[in-house]
Design a protein around this nucleic acid. Structure first.
Lengths: 115, 115
DNA sequence: TTTATACTTAGTCATTTGGCTAAGAGTCAA
DNA sequence: TTGACTCTTAGCCAAATGACTAAGTATAAA
């Protein structure tokens, strides 16, 4: 179930959504992970559920991610069509980001265990 | 004279720099105007010189613009190489932005008079 | 060498942002 | 239906942000 449906939002809203380190980390994570549930994001960012939820809401409102509810879980994935060239550029740039690289390793562990 | 020299800065800093409406307006203006002096930017944004100066400093630190001092004037231009794909994407998206379109008209007047 | 001009820096203030806790809503299992 | 679990909403607080005024720096003109 997608709360804020599709479409391109304005560039300013998109920039604002990506101007926070934790939201940028989530976007980067979704570039390699295809899909993550809220609990994965909580574990990755090491923040409370409430905080993660609000961050995901910002990304949703900007149109950068889509959400899908499955039972008690909410799964997020990138809405690549929203800003494909932007994502592509980011993906390249973030290759060199040490924190993002560390996150990638963490994600393997997080998504590995099915707790 | 370039205060913060060339190079690519990290994506987060770039996103932060572009996550403010006024700074996005300046970036958009520099996409069509090639070069603007501080006083042009003051007039465009309708803010004090101090405010404009601080905004330009953020853009400079992010590496998105370059500055050149000529006598009493400081001229700014886009540092396109810093994030060419990003600028290209922005340029496309901002085509539909009403405020940006209005700014373009304003800029013709501003850069026209040599006060 | 004053004086004016163009911009920057410092300091202040209101608003926004991002974190938290606590309470609420929705879903599944016992 | 009760309880456990996952996520969201509301409310609070500290820190960051963007605006202003006032004072400082640098350059050019008188």
């Amino acid at each position: 179930m997608t709360k804020y449906k599709g479409g391109m939002n304005n560039p300013l809203e998109i920039m604002k959504a990506l101007s926070d380190r934790n939201r940028l980390r989530v976007a980067a994570a979704l570039m390699t992970q295809n899909e993550l549930c809220a609990c994965n994001i909580i574990e990755l960012l090491q923040v409370t559920g409430a905080t993660a939820s609000r961050h995901m809401d910002v990304l949703l409102r900007a149109g950068l991610v889509k959400s899908r509810k499955a039972g008690r879980w909410v799964h997020y994935r990138l809405n690549r069509s929203a800003a494909a060239p932007l994502f592509q550029w980011l993906e390249t740039e973030l290759q060199n980001d040490l924190d993002i690289k560390a996150d990638r390793k963490t994600l393997v562990k997080i998504t590995g265990c099915k707790k």
